[in-house]
């Protein structure tokens, strides 16, 4: 999987894989490869959904006049 993948990107990719899988155009080799990638994405998304904390970082704004 690509580094720096985001939740949105992974969701979109998974959606595309599901659509390809349902398109009826894949042979079984392609289907297995897509499925494997889909599995990776599902794992990643599941992990992201299980995170419970958010990190707050305070920035010091410069005052404008």
């Amino acid at each position: 999987m690509k580094e720096k993948i985001t939740f949105s990107i992974a969701s979109k990719e998974l959606e595309q894989i599901v659509q390809a899988m349902e398109s009826g155009k894949l042979d079984i080799d392609e289907a297995l490869a897509k499925f494997e990638h889909g599995l990776e994405l599902t794992k990643f998304l599941k992990k992201r959904l299980s995170e419970v904390e958010n990190r707050v970082k305070e920035l010091k704004g410069e005052k404008k006049d």
């Binding site: 969701s11 998974l14 959606e15 894989i17 599901v18 899988m21 349902e22 009826g24 894949l26 042979d27 079984i28 289907a31 297995l32 499925f35 889909g38 599902t42 998304l45 599941k46 959904l49």
Partner: peptide, 24 residues
């Protein structure tokens, strides 16, 4: 909402399985 997203993930998961199933 993470619960809604989880539902969606489950649905994609099952569509993925059914798709592969049909191909097999």
């Amino acid at each position: 909402d993470r619960h809604a997203l989880l539902e969606q993930l489950k649905s994609n998961w099952s569509r993925l399985s059914q798709g592969l199933n049909q191909i097999i």
